[in-house]
Amino acid sequence: MTTSYEEIRVPVTGGGLAALRWPARDPGAPVVVALHGITANALSWGTVARLLDGRVTLVAPDLRGRGGSAGLPGPYGIAAHTDDTAALAEALGQDRVVLAGHSMGAFVAALAAVRHPGRFGELVLVDGGFGFPAPTHLSADELITAVIGPAMDRLSMTFPDRDAYRSFWRAHPAFGGDAWSPEVDAYIQRDLTGEEPAMRSGCRLEAVRTDGMGLFQDEVLAAVRELPQPATLLWAQRGLMNEEQGLYDESRLAAAGQPGTNVEAVRVEDVNHYTVLTGHKGAGEVAGALLRAASVTG
């Protein structure tokens, strides 16, 4: 299995965007650019990379304000990530790369495809991309809490060492049972920064807040319904805390305008918002969708 990667950095506004590159066995194989969620990092795609097994080149950036890109300055926001993604694709020297995104990354992918229609091929959206208008009765702080409340809390916490951070995540309802793996461990450890006994998440709070609010902007909400190319949405049966109600179901997708778009919606059973990407079953579905989008067989 191909699990090794190289770290690269490409020029974007304000500095260099960090990314991880899992190379294909065949140098001429298709390229997939994969975008992570709002408080995640590039290694959230590690299980998918293992299951792709070198059949495509997978490139996953640390989005601005996270991981190796934490030092990039603002402005943040979905549009800024879109520009960074286009710059990454251009730096890779590839035409029509397959574009994938999980959670917030799916919204970035959809907007990038609309803004740069000649740069990207088919899309694979993972439990994200279709949104809903902001409730008018909530303040900005209430709105961002409603979107990513527990994740926001983590950004203000400190941990005495890496084992404590590991224990924090292993107690998360979404990672119970057999959901833990070496790839999940590497992913959560990449998020950690600082020195003992006051280690913390490397995500910049300002970036997360700005991006969270950006998910309710009209242009961002409309992008997935305006895609010029085919896309697949893989949506998780269960939610962020492993609750029975996931982010989507058939009625929610109908309300968000999915029917009649270029997006085929596929339910993934027995996964939650995280394990649809990081778990073996979910990552297998994602890897299969990426290979189909890249027209790779065998």
Rank of each mutant, 00 (worst) to 15 (best):
M152T: 10
A231G: 10
G128F: 02
G284L: 10
D161Y: 10
T145I: 13
V114S: 04
G93N: 15
P133S: 13
R50P: 04
R162C: 05
F132M: 15
D53S: 01
K281I: 09
G77E: 11
E243A: 09
V147A: 04
C203T: 00
S139V: 06
R50N: 11
N41H: 06
I148P: 03
D161A: 07
L227S: 02
E219S: 11
A236T: 11
R119D: 03
G68T: 11
M157F: 11
T193M: 14
T2M: 13
R25P: 01
A29F: 00
L125M: 13
C203Y: 05
L227C: 08
G16C: 15
G15L: 10
L51E: 03
N262Y: 02
S167V: 10
C203A: 14
G16P: 09
Y248P: 01
G14T: 02
D191N: 15
W22Y: 13
N242A: 11
G37L: 05
W180V: 05
A89I: 00
G54A: 06
I78F: 05
V208M: 07
L51C: 03
H116W: 01
R252P: 02
V114A: 04
F168Y: 07
G101F: 00
T3P: 07
F107A: 14
G239L: 06
R162D: 08
Q245V: 12
A236M: 10
D127V: 10
H172Y: 15
T47G: 02
E6A: 14
S295L: 12
T82M: 06
W22Q: 07
M152C: 09
E195S: 15
N41R: 02
R170C: 08
I148E: 11
L123W: 05
G131I: 04
V98T: 10
W169V: 06
R25V: 15
Y274T: 12
A49C: 07
E243I: 07
G37W: 03
V124D: 04
A207I: 05
M104Y: 09
W235K: 07
D185T: 14
G46Q: 03
A134S: 15
L240V: 10
R292V: 07
T82S: 09
S69C: 08
D178C: 10
P228K: 03
A198R: 14
S201E: 05
Y187G: 08
L277G: 06
W22N: 00
S181L: 07
R64S: 04
S4D: 15
D153P: 06
V147T: 13
G288W: 08
I188L: 10
L143K: 08
R225D: 04
R66I: 04
H116Y: 08
A70E: 11
R190K: 14
T193P: 03
T193I: 14
A106I: 09
Q229T: 13
C203K: 05
A86M: 04
T47K: 00
D270R: 13
R21C: 09
S181Q: 14
Y5H: 15
